[in-house]
């Protein structure tokens, strides 16, 4: 059974990765599974300086999903390189680091340092406000997005760059195309959907940050639609994210055109989810008598 897929210059042994911000720096999952069975680990978003995150409550559950406003809490680039990366390197899987910044310069600095440290790839979190451009988020403005990807591409010409697209746009194909044209090796989608939960008794929002990002099975149909649209718009690989809990969910994303998938909230529900999905994919292909996972990518039968 051949589960391997290619993302840019990267060869993944299988299409199952963890979504940024749901797998910590790998340490928390070793009680439950062996991270080496994964195609890749997308490490929690790293910024230039450490970030302490938002005040609590930071999460709440909603029907078939959850809202989070963690506030990008992370140890910062320096600590990541010194304390976290050596540990992650022990696993036989691709280490892709999600990065975020308030300016293009910050993204470039982080990308260069990580590339120099030999990480396997970089995923751009473009849902942060561009401080220099008056707070507009990179991910919702095609020109800013293009400039950002271009600059990172030039700074790390040989690195695998994945751009994580925001669902908060009117046309996903336009943004997918922008990422491709600017030199991104792949796109991952979708990031969480901005949302609000309210306590009717106290009249207060359920999160201290008021709004948060919706994730989990509740967003899966939206993610599938966007992955399907994006996959038709670009030649570069698409990585599907959004509400994947099991191997059937993963198969749906592959059929919609994703070359790989990321599991996020599913890790919280079942810390063994990713490793069970790898096994489940293999069993699925065997049952269908298909020898390679790449044979089902984008094979959705539309009328």
């Amino acid at each position: 059974m051949d589960l391997s897929v290619s993302i840019g210059r990267l060869n993944l042994k299988n299409p199952v990765m963890t979504a940024s911000g749901t797998f910590g720096y790998g340490e928390e999952y070793t009680d439950f599974m062996d991270p080496s069975v994964l195609g890749g680990i997308i490490v929690k978003g790293i910024s230039l300086k450490p970030m302490e995150g938002n005040p609590p409550p930071r999460i709440c559950e909603t029907p078939c999903g959850m809202l989070n406003a963690i506030g990008l809490q992370n140890v910062g680039l320096k600590n990541f390189l010194k304390e976290k990366l050596p540990y992650l390197r022990k696993f036989e899987t691709k280490i892709i680091v999600n990065i975020l910044g308030k300016s293009i310069q910050e993204y470039v600095k982080i990308a260069k340092a990580l590339d120099g440290a030999g990480v396997d790839g970089i995923e751009l979190n473009v849902s942060c406000p561009n401080v220099k451009k008056g707070g507009i988020t990179f991910g919702t403005d095609q020109r800013s997005l293009s400039q950002l990807i271009n600059s990172v591409r030039q700074a790390v010409p040989s690195a695998t760059i994945i751009t994580k697209l925001s669902p908060n746009v009117s046309s996903i194909p336009d943004f997918a195309k922008t990422a491709e044209d600017a030199g991104s090796d792949a796109i991952s989608l979708i990031n969480t959907i901005p949302a609000l939960a309210i306590d009717p008794e106290t009249w207060k929002p359920r999160l201290a940050n008021v709004t948060g990002g919706l994730s989990g099975p509740a967003i899966k149909p939206i993610a599938l639609r966007m992955v399907w649209e994006a996959a038709q718009a670009v030649q570069i690989p698409v990585i599907g994210v959004g509400g994947i809990l099991n191997s059937s969910d993963a198969v749906e994303f592959l059929l919609a055109g994703a070359s790989a998938v990321q599991v996020g909230t599913g890790n919280f529900v079942n810390p063994r989810a990713t490793s069970e999905i790898v096994e489940g994919l293999s069993a699925y292909l065997q049952r269908k008598n298909i020898h390679s996972v790449s044979a089902i990518i984008g094979k959705l039968k539309t009328p």
Partner: peptide, 8 residues
Amino acid sequence: FGACLGCA
């Protein structure tokens, strides 16, 4: 188990 950072 320490991954989500939700319970700060």
